[in-house]
Design a protein around this nucleic acid. Sequence first.
DNA 1: AGGATTAGTTGGTGTTACGTACTAATATAG
DNA 2: CTATATTAGTACGTAACACCAACTAATCCT
Lengths: 156, 156
Amino acid sequence: MKVMTQASPATQPRLEQGDDDLGIVDALAQLTFLIQGTLAKHATAQDLSMAQTRLLGVLRDREPTMQELARLLDLDKSSVTGLVDRAERRGFVRRAPSADDRRSIRVHLTSAGRKVIERVGAGFRVDVATATQCLSVVERKRLSTLATRVVMAVAA
Amino acid sequence: MKVMTQASPATQPRLEQGDDDLGIVDALAQLTFLIQGTLAKHATAQDLSMAQTRLLGVLRDREPTMQELARLLDLDKSSVTGLVDRAERRGFVRRAPSADDRRSIRVHLTSAGRKVIERVGAGFRVDVATATQCLSVVERKRLSTLATRVVMAVAA
DNA sequence: AGGATTAGTTGGTGTTACGTACTAATATAG
DNA sequence: CTATATTAGTACGTAACACCAACTAATCCT
């Protein structure tokens, strides 16, 4: 995990950090893999792939067209066709004709789909809570605030 | 993004958090997707899949056997065979016979492989730095320390 | 020496993702 | 009001990826 940056040239061994700090880049990278692994675990437990999980997750509070779905998931529209095909075949989502535009289609969760994604979410929540138990209440709050700030800033 | 947990029952709209805090679970989940997206972007820019990127990333400071690689990447050994096949075909890694055990094989980066993964790392670093620019130096340090603590605690 | 175990590959199946080409519906231009 | 262009979605071909089960070769065990 040693890739040099402009900020810390190869000639300098990073002044500010000891063993208790991986540096912002590696810390976030590793945290990311950890969290993704956790999510993948619960997805697998519900017999869902990560792609299916993302699809159902996005549909929890939306009823988008295929086009919008492609944008939300950052996929090609032809990829979304297949994804929704398989989810529909398993009874997790359904396609409904759009009211205003007869070309487009609205995708929505079925109750079975909602149930399965809620189960993944519940398990995930427990594991994230467990993983952050090494932090005090104040620290956990700090972490979630900082993470939120970054997410919000990038979104804007 | 509203799945209820034991910690915050459905009857209560979350006492402690305002609009400036998504809560530890959603904040980390969203941060994770953000970071993964960034990494994927730079991987694609170097014409690498995420699987190839993870492979080359792991090999930066290791020369594992196929078996160890499977454990490191949390993949089936047969998946690793294919992954290494494709990476070798593209000249990024090489297989070398293991000295002590004639059954096993050691996989190592080529200079081309090292070069390409370093480029991904460099771009990724820049983007993480940019994404965290909304934080002060102290806050950034705090975030990286907290993330490190979580990663370390889970690893142990 | 001989059976169990371990390392790695092979082959088969299913998912995922993409690009291109296509149909149908809507929007725009003249 | 046609004629053309654009948009929404699907179909098809290709390739990567991941798994399982079956297989070969080397090593371990007793």
